[in-house]
């Protein structure tokens, strides 16, 4: 590209200064301008490939909160068709809305968690994460006993757990009541819903990753490439704001499995936990498990000093 532009010019250059004729000079300039424009079109030709993957309907789609029920139905039908076309999977994408009178809260018993990572894997499968990277919304930090300083922790531990001098701190989206990620989003592509879940409209996110920079809990993930999930491994039970396969170039995050929890079920990471360290529930229900824990256990939150007010608690027996 660069060569086609640069080689002809020096050869024709010597004649330029002696050209006094205005029109001829204009023609030469026009020729080079055309050449440059042609070279530019050739240079950005890979964009045509990208444009093929974006339909006009997708390009024009409005923000989730502004879609009428009919528009939503159209969008969901389109997304289901795309899943069939691109992933070969028959999926059902629901539009699960918050249950009135519900505010979801999570708690983890650090006395029990042994860092086995089953939650990480369950999240990976449930949420149709990219298989190449073993992506997951959960990271488990192995911490030396006697400190809460994550600087001393490690997420890359392997082998037999638990190790005698360590405890294990699973971290995922804390569904903050004062979420910095929501504040910084320039296009309101992420927001907090009535039941406390911070969601992302994957079809509105522009991929600036400011939320990734703002989140103090490493809760957000960016789709650096198109996720790879074999058809037979796709979880077909999906929701628009939750675990549908995400497009490339947008940010995603833990939604407390809203496609399950808004239908009354427990999150996948909790069901997968073999140690029973995870507790989930509705904090507005005074008889709920989670309320009993907050009232009876020694509970703490991560990075309290940042004022993010997490809806995620850690406790010790």
């Amino acid at each position: 590209m660069a060569n086609t532009e640069s080689t002809p010019q020096p050869t024709s250059k010597p004649s330029l200064p002696v050209v006094q004729n205005f029109t001829r000079r204009a023609a030469v300039k026009g020729a080079f301008a055309t050449l440059g424009a042609g070279a530019f079109v050739a240079a950005v030709s890979p964009l045509r490939q990208a444009a093929k993957n974006t339909t006009a309907a997708e390009f024009m789609q409005q923000h989730y909160t502004e879609l009428s029920p009919e528009q939503k139905a159209d969008v969901i039908a389109r997304l289901e068709a795309e899943a069939k076309e691109q992933y070969g999977a028959d999926v059902q994408i629901a539009d699960d809305r918050p249950i009135p009178g519900t505010k979801f809260v999570y708690a983890i018993n650090l006395s029990v968690c042994n860092g086995n990572g089953k939650c990480v894997e369950a999240c990976h499968k449930e949420n149709n994460h990219d298989r190449d990277t073993n992506q997951s919304y959960i990271r488990v930090v192995e911490m030396p006993k006697g400190t809460m300083d994550m600087e001393k922790g490690s997420t890359t531990y392997t082998g037999t757990v638990p190790k005698d001098d360590k405890f294990y701190l699973p971290v995922q989206c804390q569904q903050c009541d004062e979420p910095p990620c929501v504040d910084v989003c320039p296009v309101k592509a992420t927001w907090k819903e009535e039941d406390g879940i911070v969601v992302v409209d994957y079809n509105w996110c522009i991929g600036c990753r400011y939320c990734e920079a703002a989140c103090p809990y490493h809760a957000r993930r960016f789709n650096w490439k198109k996720p790879v999930v074999p058809a037979e491994e796709i979880n077909p039970d999906q929701s628009y704001l939750s675990n549908r396969v995400r497009p490339v170039g947008v940010v995603e995050k833990c939604t407390y499995c809203l496609h399950r929890t808004r239908r009354g079920r427990l999150p996948a990471c909790l069901e997968a936990c073999p140690t029973g360290a995870r507790v989930f529930g509705n904090i507005l229900d005074k008889d709920s498990n989670i309320r009993w824990i907050l009232e009876n256990k020694r509970v703490y939150i991560l990075k309290e000093e940042l004022g993010t007010k997490p809806a995620f608690f850690y406790y010790f027996d």
């Binding site: 249950i99 708690a107 018993n109 029990v112 929890t261 239908r263 009354g264 079920r265 427990l266 909790l270 069901e271 936990c273 073999p274 140690t275 029973g276 507790v279 989930f280 529930g281 509705n282 709920s288 498990n289 989670i290 009993w292 824990i293 009876n296 256990k297 406790y315 027996d317």
Partner: peptide
Amino acid sequence: SFAHGAHGGMTGHWDLRRGPQMKI
């Protein structure tokens, strides 16, 4: 703790209006 869901694994529903909860 077990009686309050704070010990032991479970599956099923957090919301008993919508379905049962299974505990080990």
